[in-house]
Amino acid sequence: MGGFEDYLSIFTKAVFIENIVLAYFLGLCSFLAISKSIDASVGIGMAVVVVLTITAPINWFIYEFLLSKGALVWLNTLFSIQYDFSNTDLSFLKLIVFISVIAAMVQLVEMFMERFSQSLYSSLGIFLPLIAVNCSILGGSLFMVEREYNVTETMVYGFGSGVGFFLAIVALASVRYRLRYSNIPPRLRGVGMAMLLTGLLSMAFMAFSGIDL
């Protein structure tokens, strides 16, 4: 493992083949609610890219050095504690820890933006709190544990998933924009139509599944 091709393959997979929204159904709540407007979609898309790229590697470090089985052995070597940590398994804590890290990181990113880039803050600011409970962020961290990625792979995967979300939401928003004057049956309007459109988008993205890198 390792090497540029692997990273390229993980990235392409995360963006197109295993798109986090269209193949794994993650982050659909905000996906459907916000795709009514293209500007807002671009905003939340960027926010997801930023937060996923930051939180996935941080959660990787926490999982690798605190939570997984035998992760605490560095305590033995560093502080020469007598207790043997090689069998300590704290991974049942991962859900609570991951969600707290995500909530804290979202808060931090928001504060940084407010301090250093007022224009970015005014365009992304309102979306950041929403992102803390966006399942694609927690999903990214959980998938990285399940697939046993190393730290660089996690970073590439997080970024790729974010870009995948960005692409999907902007595509759906644009299609919905074009549909504004179409004659849709009244009770299918809104969410019903958005679901059918997402199905079509998802079919279109399935065409990428032949790509093998």
Binding site: R187, S202, M206
Partner: peptide, 16 residues
């Protein structure tokens, strides 16, 4: 996955 979107879309339509 597209199947899930289609069926849920139709279920929502029916219920509404």
């Amino acid at each position: 996955s597209p199947g899930a979107f289609f069926i849920l879309g139709l279920v929502i339509w029916t219920q509404r």
